[in-house]
């Protein structure tokens, strides 16, 4: 018996029964296609970010991506901690307790929790001469460690100091830092404790 590759000229009429209908597309396949298309639209809407080339896999939309960006306004305490640990912590300690003979403590210090205008002046221009912190006398010189920081970073690091290690102060804003920076102008001379006490 051999199989003819050519298609028959007319339907074979041998009387052989065809148990299945000739090649109609079953309706359920079309229904399933439209269900899948509907699902696909929804899926793409939820995950595809509408062809935005800036949105990558774990994020689903530009809005979600922007939600995770670091805030541009307001105070970012995480940023403050990072700046503190890279700029201040070498002398004042990661725990803010200071180091004997090197730097006074910041935790619970009246100079940290006192008026903001007084505090901002210290990193901007430095501090020299005798000073009493937490009832203990210190006589050291601190350079102007914060002069090179931006207003936002300095505000963040000071806010971090005023709210960490048991300190319960208010946050410092970038505007407050900017105002003090303008007030002291090009001053290169470090402040003394007596001078600072006149600032309210």
């Amino acid at each position: 018996m051999s199989v003819e590759m050519r298609r028959p000229a007319q339907p074979a009429t041998e009387g052989r029964e065809e148990p299945t209908p000739q090649g109609a597309v079953p309706m359920w396949l079309f229904i399933l296609l439209f269900v899948a298309l509907f699902w696909g639209m929804n899926y793409f809407d939820r995950h595809g970010a509408w062809f935005n080339g800036r949105v990558y896999a774990p994020y689903r939309s530009l809005a979600e991506l922007q939600m995770h960006q670091p805030p541009t306004g307001g105070i970012n305490l995480e940023r403050g901690r990072a700046v503190y640990e890279s700029v201040c912590a070498l002398c004042h300690g990661v725990d803010g307790k200071g180091k004997p003979g090197q730097a006074p403590p910041l935790a619970g210090a009246e100079w940290v929790l006192g008026p903001v205008n007084r505090l901002v002046r210290i990193p901007l221009a430095g501090l020299t001469g005798p000073i009493e912190v937490n009832g203990q006398q210190w006589n050291l010189a601190m350079p102007a460690m914060g002069a090179a920081l931006s207003d936002e970073d300095l505000a963040a690091v000071l806010s971090y100091m005023r709210t960490s290690w048991g300190n319960k102060g208010t946050e410092v804003t970038a505007e407050q830092v900017g105002a003090v920076r303008k007030e002291i102008g090009n001053r290169t001379q470090p402040f003394t404790a007596a001078e600072l006490l006149t600032v309210q």
């Binding site: 396949l29 899948a36 298309l37 699902w39 793409f44 595809g48 970010a49 935005n52 994020y59 689903r60």
Partner: peptide, 22 residues
């Protein structure tokens, strides 16, 4: 799905895979 490409590419590919399942 986790290819390092803009999210629309894997998302569209997943949809295409499911549709070609039909």
């Amino acid at each position: 799905a986790t290819a390092p490409l803009p999210a629309w590419m894997p998302a569209l590919s997943t949809v295409g895979t499911v549709l070609s399942g039909l």
